[in-house]
Simulated scan of single mutants.
Amino acid sequence: MSPEYAMRGQFSVKSDVFSFGVLVLEIMSGQKNRSIRIGDNVEDLLTFTWKNWREGTVENMIDPILRAAGTGSLRDMIKCIHIGLLCVQENASKRPPMASILIMLSSSTMNLPVPSEPACFMDISLFDNCDDSNSSDASKRLKARTTISEGLSINDVTVTDLYPR
């Protein structure tokens, strides 16, 4: 779910681009968005992908089954991850339109723009995934984009707005 939809209920074609990007990253990594376990840490897919991208180790996050099956070149797999990161940027206006994504996927010579940091999602109790060392805990909570795992609620209360789009 795109951050603008999750936080403010705003839906647009850029929300679909965000979802497409998450799907591409799930396929390339072989991991679900909310359940990547690395040692004792559990991270969401976007945080995990961004860390690997910044560190230049993005090839380490590619699903070993994809690599072993010889389904494509490493360059093409990294390109798909690059496009996935472009799709999940926090600012919806920075996400490319689907027509551009199609061109990016089909072109072997196109230079892709550098992605910015993706939206940050985390468990409500874990505020250390978004790196903002200058903020107080209270402001981190206000800035944090939170999602709640399936079946988990802070106070077991849910709210549903029944308004048509």
Rank of each mutant, 00 (worst) to 15 (best):
L162Q: 05
L85P: 01
A6W: 07
I101F: 08
N41F: 09
V17W: 00
W53V: 05
N60K: 15
L46I: 01
S108Q: 13
I154Q: 12
I83F: 09
R54L: 15
M110S: 03
S107N: 04
S107Q: 06
E150M: 14
S100Q: 08
E43C: 05
T146L: 10
V22K: 01
S2A: 14
L23N: 04
A99D: 13
S106T: 14
M98S: 03
M104H: 11
E117Y: 06
M1A: 01
D128S: 14
I154E: 11
M77C: 04
S125N: 09
A69N: 09
D128W: 12
G56A: 10
I103V: 13
N52E: 08
D161S: 12
D161I: 10
D123V: 10
S153F: 12
R37A: 06
P96G: 04
L46P: 01
R67K: 13
T49G: 05
D132M: 13
P164A: 00
M98H: 02
D40I: 11
I103Q: 11
R67L: 14
N91M: 15
S136Q: 09
D161Y: 06
P164F: 04
L45K: 06
D16Q: 02
M104I: 01
E117K: 10
S139T: 12
D63C: 03
S149H: 13
S135Q: 07
I81V: 03
Y5S: 01
I78M: 07
N129G: 06
Y5D: 04
I83A: 04
M28C: 01
M104N: 01
M28K: 02
S149Y: 09
R67C: 07
V58T: 15
D161A: 05
W50I: 03
S19R: 02
L142E: 14
I78W: 00
E150I: 14
D40M: 15
A6C: 00
P64L: 08
Y5F: 07
G21K: 03
T158A: 13
M110T: 10
L112R: 05
R8P: 00
A92M: 13
K140Q: 13
R8C: 09
I27T: 02
V88L: 07
R165W: 09
S135C: 10
